[in-house]
């Protein structure tokens, strides 16, 4: 039974709003965690994203001497745009905007855009710290991307299809998380990595004065920060479709289940941020290529053998 249907393009107006609200919830949770850690109230933390937005909208924008302004601004604005484009293939309950036959590849394409965008933010500023940040991201990307791709392809193998609705439908008997735990974990860590978040936020870390963020202020900075949360949110939502049976669940309607699962996963991603030390790219490389990559390959092998035997 394939009960996911494409909806009218008019709903595409709503999708970015939903994405924005979920991302805001993620940012609020982050604010709460920060506030609690500093001994302040729950409420003072929850409003932090709103206060920061107001602050950055009031702040003047900045550029640097002989900056590559066009490329720089493409990078700043691009993260949000990429995240919004990802929502096209993410089913919410029984609905999806664009059920293209290569939905999984579409998601992959969008997260490869992030490589270019983050690097452009670092490059465009003509600032040493930003440049180091941009290249740090690339060094990290060559390590997380391959495990991510194999983690993406594993559910597709099990579903015999790259169409996201087929992947969701294939989980009616058993959610993929149950027999693809390695792929799931690798996918989640990769989402955190391409969102430039938590232990993988070395390209924007304090040791290089904010790296890619060093020179940006005002609305440019707002777009980068919002883009990070939006990427994290779409990553969580896609994990729900790939591994958690999409909108499947008792009692509640499908769309609500998708939102609930997405929020839970997003909360886990946000929480991860403060709990772990940074994973510097040169430390990541060895582990990613020698331990994680073979592990996720093994996962793909097991799944494909099962699929091949079943026919």
């Amino acid at each position: 039974m394939n009960d996911i249907v494409e909806v009218n393009p008019g709903w595409a107006l709503l999708a970015p709003v939903v994405l924005g609200l979920l991302a805001l919830a993620g940012a609020a949770l982050n604010g709460i965690l920060v506030a609690r850690a500093e001994g302040r109230s729950f409420r003072s933390g929850a409003v932090i994203p709103v206060l920061e937005t107001a602050r950055l909208m009031r702040q003047r924008r900045r550029t640097t001497v002989a900056a590559d302004v066009l490329l720089w601004r493409i990078g700043c604005a691009g993260l949000v745009v990429t995240a919004v484009l990802k929502t096209a293939v993410i089913p919410v309950g029984p609905w999806v905007l664009a059920d293209i036959p290569v939905g999984v590849v579409w998601f992959n394409t969008m997260d490869v855009f992030v490589w270019a965008l983050v690097w452009l933010i670092g490059w465009g500023a003509n600032s040493a710290h930003a440049l180091v940040g941009g290249y740090r991201f690339l060094a990290q990307a060559v390590s997380y991307e391959l495990p991510l791709m194999f983690a993406l392809v594993t559910p597709a193998v099990a579903a015999h299809s790259l169409r996201v609705s087929d992947v969701v439908a294939a989980q009616q008997e058993l959610w993929f998380i149950v027999w693809m735990p390695i792929a799931f974990v690798v996918f989640c860590l990769s989402v955190v990595a391409f969102s430039n978040w938590g232990p993988f936020a070395t390209s924007a870390s304090a040791d290089i004065a904010g790296g890619i963020l060093t020179e940006v202020s005002g609305v440019d900075r707002l777009l980068i920060l919002a883009g990070r949360y939006a990427l994290l949110t779409t990553g969580a939502a896609f994990a729900v479709a790939l591994f958690f049976g999409g909108g499947a669940g008792p009692l509640l309607p499908g769309w609500l289940w998708t939102l609930v699962k997405t929020l839970l996963l997003l909360a886990a991603f946000v929480t991860l941020r403060h709990r772990l030390p940074a994973v510097r790219p040169e430390r990541l490389a060895e582990v990613a290529w020698i331990i994680v990559l073979p592990a996720v390959l093994l996962q793909t092998l097991v799944v494909s053998i099962v699929v091949a035997v079943r026919g």
């Binding site: 500093e38 302040r40 900045r62 904010g210 963020l213 060093t214 940006v216």
Partner: peptide, 12 residues
């Protein structure tokens, strides 16, 4: 205490 933040660069 105030819920302010230390800036990491002048742009911030």
């Amino acid at each position: 205490r105030r819920g302010w933040a230390p800036a990491i660069s002048p742009a911030d």
